[in-house]
Design a protein around this nucleic acid. Structure first.
Lengths: 211, 211
DNA sequence: CGGAATAAATGTACCGCGTACATCAATTGT
DNA sequence: ACAATTGATGTACGCGGTACATTTATTCCG
């Protein structure tokens, strides 16, 4: 991981990504995501509108910043899984590891705003990009492990099922309010039956198909 | 089904939805979806830009018109399923029925453009809305049939898995070019193992849980 | 025949997102 | 002191999508 700080040369950063996130957070609570413009955010943060796009590629990125900070490790966790572990069990373990550092405070905006606006509208703003990215990661891993081509419907079904379970878990977690247990528990409970089922199916014909 | 034709009163429609679709189809082939603006489409069709939004709610709707024309029947097909049929088997049958009328000619733009531009960019434009809508339909049906709450991760996993399998089948179908078999075959082959697996899981504890 | 009533099509104006690019400002190294 | 570098700003633009008033074409009915 490159050290972001101490950029030896050039003008030092005045505004930070965190400043913009904070300003956006205030406004999202005051008037929801849809009613907040990028100009509103930068105005509150005291910077120009252009600066926003130096830190985020899109307005919707703010909704997903917590998600984005953690999901990147999924591929690495999968790569580090023991070879003996069944494929979907490894997927489950990887998700648990990725999700562990997310405390009860840092609920992604993508989830909390879900309650204020319709689910779809929030997710439409670039939720699918993230979904498909992680689906591709899972498909690649499952294809390697089971020997089934990544394009096989069974592989895609397994990837989508896992992501769906995780999404449902995250939704339940966000909806449980302040008394919520760690996200890790929700994800664990959600993935257990799904992964077990697919591992059984993959073990039956998928595993043998490879050798 | 309401008779769309012979609208007794008012000015008759000069341009039709099909005209706009045709104009858009030409332009998508000439310069891809992204490089085609709504103004381009309406100009080629010989109508004003405003008219476009009388027929489509968004530019991306053109990509999905074939899909939209057929998917609406999914809920109805599910409702008409025999009570004895296992839940996911009914889902499979419903998808096959919905997909049957789609001939080898009418490949949705959402799929063909997938090859020209990156998959994500096309799907980002409101593919998720459709995905989530159908996921909600499936969740509702599965919840009714199995007695498991619709919010349960297993239900969402099953719904996502089925949709993922169908999406993979559609992708393979579109990618197979002119010699492709009917879409129905691809979907059948893709859903069979997935639905069987989930029905086994639901039958184990889901079915008995209801009574 | 001649007006309502209705509905499609147009024109206009606008807002917000995202991009491109030139310019300014602040810091480091020499 | 001066160049190089890097962040911040300003400006302008294109496109998608919305709102709304206006025009045009048709049917119904007196």
């Amino acid at each position: 991981m490159p050290d972001v700080r101490t950029p030896r040369r050039g003008r030092p950063t005045a505004s930070s990504r965190a400043d913009l996130e904070d300003a956006a957070a205030e406004l999202f609570l005051e008037r929801t995501y849809a009613a907040t413009s990028v100009a509103d955010i930068t105005q509150r943060a005291g910077v120009s509108r252009t600066t926003f796009f130096n830190y985020f590629t899109a307005k919707s990125d703010v909704l997903w910043s917590t998600f984005d900070r953690n999901i990147g490790r999924l591929a690495g966790c999968l790569a580090g899984a023991a070879a003996e572990t069944p494929a979907m069990a490894a997927v489950r373990a990887a998700f648990l590891e990725v999700v562990s550092p997310i405390g009860p405070e840092s609920v992604p905006w993508a989830l909390t705003q879900q309650e204020l606006m319709g689910t779809r509208e929030v997710l439409e703003s670039s939720g699918l990009r993230r979904f498909m990215e992680q689906a591709a990661v899972l498909r690649g891993f499952l294809a390697r492990r089971t020997g089934i081509p990544a394009a096989d419907p069974r592989v895609q079904a397994a990837a989508f099922a896992a992501l769906g379970a995780v999404a449902a878990a995250a939704g339940a977690w966000a909806g449980d309010g302040v008394g919520r247990r760690p996200l890790r528990d929700y994800v664990d409970h959600a993935l257990s039956p799904v992964c077990a089922g697919f591992d059984a199916a993959f073990g039956a014909d998928g595993g043998t198909q490879r050798g």
